[in-house]
Write a protein that binds this DNA or RNA. Structure first.
Lengths: 203, 203
DNA sequence: ACCTGAACACCGTTCAAGT
DNA sequence: ACCTGAACACCGTTCAAGT
């Protein structure tokens, strides 16, 4: 047996990605498997390899789906008032990580085998997140693009660290909202005064 | 066959942990396996289970070894001048993560299966790192212990995020020393002025 | 009591062979 | 061209049986 041809290759890829996306949510990165996804779609493992070449590429496609939905979410719910943007993005990052822990952490748990480079089409999906934050941060650094890029990455990385350690229970924090308060502290430090970061780049 | 009795149980545990520690360095968390460690020690897989009960406990023991050596390292190399401590610990964190990436990242890649709680003896090995940073941060918050604990966790998490994303190549940074500069920026924000954080807790 | 060997239920990966 | 089924080399986990 073989050759069902019930779907085009493109349709089948979409079905696989959706099934993979669901399995990531249900089982997490460590419980994710090509065989499991294949079973979920009613096909054989070989089909996954036929469609994507290798497991890395498949996982990248699943993670790309996460990044697309996440980005969409961030953009569509962003407030219009510029002065609220930094606070919004920072808290929104933590909220997303909390609400969709498995699919979010898969983004960072996945490693290319043999340290192969990430394909060119994938990297921008991660990087374009910076553009949002850069824009949000811009008014706080006197509209200096270089300072904005630099502060945006610092804040992104810091919020990421807070989210990671907090959700992994590695911060010894007591009570709900502790991580949220840390983010508030970070915002206060980074963007608390008005235009504290003019000259950020010249120190 | 069985019962070699060449070593006591304690000795065998030590041998297993050392072999596991080495394998973590060589293969990384994702390439780590009980079977591989057993082969490395010249025993069967069953022995690992006999010694530690389950794989989680074994990995925890290996990671504990990392935390012990790391802590030792931090303490022994810390500068004596109090005003250099924050800068030292922040950069030292990144330097350790960079130099021992596999064993360091294993600390954060490991998850208990079925979301079992981390055993009581393990948690403090992670948490005592905070004590160092709390002490370092203390003079910057007017010797307020609560503010120190809060700022220490914020800095720890932020430096962790910078290290994670930077070493994973997810920060789109060009040139060497970019992560180091981010840490300098963080320090400038958090601890740059003198005693900026008096009243940190009362906002 | 300590350790082995084998078994079981899973993986990722490859590929000849069917339609 | 598409997809299967089977094979291979790995896993984690358990446990009866040897010393």
């Amino acid at each position: 047996m073989a050759r069902r041809s019930e779907h085009t290759t493109e349709e089948l890829k979409e079905i696989a990605i959706r099934a993979g996306f669901e399995m990531m949510d249900e089982k997490g990165y460590q419980g994710f498997s090509a065989r499991g996804v294949a079973a979920k779609m009613g096909y054989t493992v070989g089909t996954i390899y036929h469609l994507f070449g290798d497991l890395d590429t498949f996982i990248l496609n699943v993670n790309a789906r996460t990044l697309d939905e996440w980005y969409e979410d961030e953009v569509s719910r962003a407030p219009k008032k510029a002065e609220q943007l930094v606070r919004y993005y920072a808290h929104s990052y933590l909220a997303y990580a909390r609400a969709h822990y498995n699919r979010w952490s898969a983004l960072f748990e996945h490693r290319m085998q043999d340290d192969a480079p990430v394909p060119k089409w994938y990297a921008p999906k991660m990087m374009r997140m910076f553009d949002l934050i850069e824009g949000a941060v811009m008014p706080h650094v006197g509209d200096d693009p270089k300072a904005a890029a630099r502060l945006a990455k610092l804040m992104w990385a810091s919020v990421h660290g807070i989210s990671t350690l907090s959700l992994q229970g590695k911060l010894d924090q007591t009570g709900a909202g502790a991580a949220e308060r840390m983010i508030d502290d970070l915002i206060a430090l980074a963007v608390g005064g008005k235009k504290v970061f003019v000259g950020f780049d010249k120190r």
